[in-house]
Nucleic acid binder design. Structure first.
Length: 676
DNA sequence: ACTCTGAGCGCC
DNA sequence: AAACGGCGCTCTGAGT
């Protein structure tokens, strides 16, 4: 089924590496997948009545045989079966059941869009008044983004009803039945049913015709998923993973608190900064042949582009993905270093940077305003970000509306300042130390790295991976400063230390030897080759996972001895059109996902601890390798013993996958920005 | 009016 | 052929 050659197709690799059985229990996966590209017709489970019938009417007996007492989630199982595939119901049903419900969805979309258009016409408004149509940016629809029509799926039926009840035919009819609405080029008109076709206008039922198969197929999909999970020894992993659902729900509904006063304070400061910088930019531009610069609200627009590249004739050293000259923060950094001091150009670039930073921060604050809800305590508000445990191709959760995993901690723009505990509460955060470095280090047995983690107080590295690499890449600069803790960082904080940090992240995230990006970050040709020569074991591990990914299509997390010692969570790696997995992906996915598996298991045990001790304390935010806690305020860090216990629990989860771990603790009594 | 993409930028 | 991983959000500007 799966031989190791370059021409293997995407789905031929979906084989369990242990049993060598296809991960797919369906009869012919290839033909099913092909149907994704060929819209087909599905037998719609249709009910003649207007009202959506009970599920049991559609699928008799289902309720009796199905274990509904346990919350099953096809998103969780779908992700476990193939982390890299679309997990929306339409795609999953197509893949696992060979049913295409897309046409029903499309019909609903078409009808809703048409109804929305109709409601906006003068004739309609004259007859029925102004109806409210969902629009982007409305205050009480904060999560309405592009697919606003989805908020109006009730509309076709409502329009049909109003049109029918307003018609003369309706009142004239003894045996009252809804008529059909016919769209004509000159508007809308009514015809009695006999002139159209037998039955009703589709708008009466377009929503239920969408909803019925939607709920119906879900049951069969769950069955297909479960079969697949059992067949591939993934059931225990699934059950463990399902514990996440109620816990994330609880986290979401509790929310995080923020203080409006602090928010206003920042908004005022950033608004002033943005306006001042923007004015200066425009003034400078006007000195170039009276250039009328229109600054974008953020990022880039044609006016700014024209001024930078055509009028000022700046030559960007970096190109965007599409090959156009870029002017992002790296380019700005470049020009700050190279443009002549006191030149108009330099001032412009500086001011543009100030404006962008202020605008970006303001943008985030605006989005927090959009989503925040009043709390019971004066001037405090709540934000309930949505957490999606199947939102990434790895085991990370994604966060949405707003994304609370990207709250700025930039100097001068630290937005964590607005978040913080209510009066009478306090926040704590615990994060893993070097989680994503420790995993490959211990897994590969890379002694040099392990020593750093195990001797955090010893010279020359004092527990710092950055310093290790600095010693390899800049030996002449490093070794004279090796004996004193912090000396290298102090002397080269904005140059070599910063560069080696950038290098480390590039290397950690898989920058390829030969591409030169890591070397560029380190400002030293050959840097990556030097580091890789020292870290042979880690390099071998990288190659191992690249090979595995090419062979099987996925890599696995390190097996958890408490859940399933035989296999880990399979994480699928996408292939390029030439059939091979990009070599930057496999180790990355493996490490990132193992890290998140550990953190997820830790969350369960921490929750147990909190409840077992009857604490009025909660996990309120999760940021990949970090948990934020809301505790009742106790003076003199009176909760410290609990936090230390939790820290121990979190670290102990490393034992399940054989990675020794430690955690760091921060105390936020006033706000999230301030830590002690 | 709606749809889609690219660019830019925040976090880990 | 080309390689720095994972995300979400906003605005732009062109296309439909």
């Amino acid at each position: 089924m799966c031989d190791d050659n370059d021409n293997q197709t995407y789905w031929e690799a979906d084989v369990d590496p242990f049993t060598r059985k296809p991960l797919w229990d369906s009869s012919d996966l290839r033909s099913i997948r092909k149907t994704i590209l060929v819209p087909g017709e599905m037998k719609i489970i249709h009910n003649e009545k207007f009202d959506v019938p009970m599920l049991d009417n559609i699928l008799p007996g289902l309720m009796d045989e199905w274990p509904w007492d346990y919350t099953h989630d096809t998103l969780i199982s779908g992700h476990l079966i193939n982390s890299n595939e679309p997990h929306d119901l339409t795609s999953q049903v197509l893949i696992h059941l060979g049913l295409n419900i897309k046409p029903v969805e499309d019909k609903l979309h078409e009808a809703t869009a048409a109804a929305r258009r109709m409601c906006r016409t003068k004739a309609f408004i004259a007859q029925f008044g102004q109806w409210r149509i969902a629009e982007k940016g409305e205050e009480d629809l904060p999560s309405a983004k592009d697919a606003t029509w989805q908020f109006d799926t009730f509309l076709p039926r409502m329009v049909a009803k109003y049109q029918w009840e307003a018609s003369d035919a309706y009142t004239a009819l003894e045996n009252r039945q809804p008529l059909s609405i016919i769209e004509k080029s000159n508007g809308w008109e009514w015809r009695p049913p006999s002139e159209v076709y037998e039955g009703y206008h589709p708008w009466w039922t377009v929503l239920s015709e969408y909803a019925n198969p939607d709920s119906g197929v879900l049951c069969y999909l769950a069955k297909a998923h479960h079969k697949c999970l059992h067949a591939n020894d993934l059931w225990s992993i699934y059950l463990e993973r399902m514990k996440l659902v109620p816990q994330l729900c609880a986290m979401e509904s509790r929310g995080a608190t923020l203080h409006q006063g602090r928010m206003t304070e920042l908004e005022e400061r950033f608004t002033k900064a943005s306006e001042a910088a923007g004015r200066l930019c425009k003034n400078i531009a006007s000195r170039y042949d009276n250039y009328k610069l229109e600054l974008p609200k953020n990022g880039m627009n044609n006016s700014l582009r024209g001024f930078l590249f055509d009028t000022m004739r700046l030559e960007s050293p970096i190109k965007t993905d599409s090959g156009a000259p870029s002017f992002d923060k790296n380019v700005i950094e470049h020009f700050m270093l190279t443009l002549p001091t006191k030149s108009k150009e330099l001032t412009f670039v500086e001011k543009l940077r100030e404006k962008r930073s202020a605008d970006t921060a303001l943008g985030y604050l605006t989005s927090y305003r959009k989503y925040m809800l009043p709390d019971e305590v004066m001037d405090f508000y709540l934000i309930h970000s949505k957490v999606n445990p199947t939102g990434t191709a790895t085991l990370r959760n994604s966060s949405q509306d707003p994304n609370s995993q990207q709250v700025s901690k930039k100097e001068g723009f630290n937005l964590r300042y607005v978040f913080g505990p209510l009066p009478g509460r306090e926040w704590w955060s615990i994060d893993y130390d070097n989680l994503e470095l420790r995993i490959p280090a211990y897994e590969s047995g890379e002694r040099v790295m392990i020593d750093i983690f195990e001797k955090p107080n010893d010279a020359p590295y004092f527990g710092s991976y950055h310093l290790l690499n600095a010693s390899i890449v800049y030996p002449d600069l490093f070794w004279p400063l090796a004996e004193k803790k912090g000396a290298f960082k102090e002397k080269y904080g904005s140059t070599y230390y910063q560069w080696i940090k950038n290098f480390d992240f590039a290397d950690q995230y898989g920058a390829m030897l030969g591409s030169g990006t890591a070397d560029l970050a380190a400002h030293k040709p050959g840097a990556q080759a030097m580091v890789q020569a020292r870290l042979k074991e880690k390099n071998k591990l990288n190659n191992k996972y690249i090979d595995l990914a090419n062979k099987w299509g996925f890599v696995e997390t390190i097996p958890d001895i408490e859940v399933n010692p035989r296999r880990g969570y399979p994480v699928y790696c996408s292939r390029s059109k030439w059939g091979r997995v990009s070599p930057t992906i496999p180790l990355n996915y493996h490490v990132q996902s193992t890290a998140c598996w550990i953190k997820m298991r830790a969350m369960f045990k921490v929750e147990e601890y909190l409840r077992a001790n009857k604490l009025d304390a909660y996990i309120i935010l999760e940021i990949h390798d970090e948990l934020i806690f809301d505790f009742p305020f106790v003076k003199d860090k009176g909760n410290l013993h609990h936090l230390n216990a939790i820290r121990k629990i979190m670290a102990s989860l490393g034992d399940c996958v054989g990675i020794p771990l430690t955690c760091g603790l921060s105390y936020h009594p006033h706000n999230w920005a301030q830590a002690s």
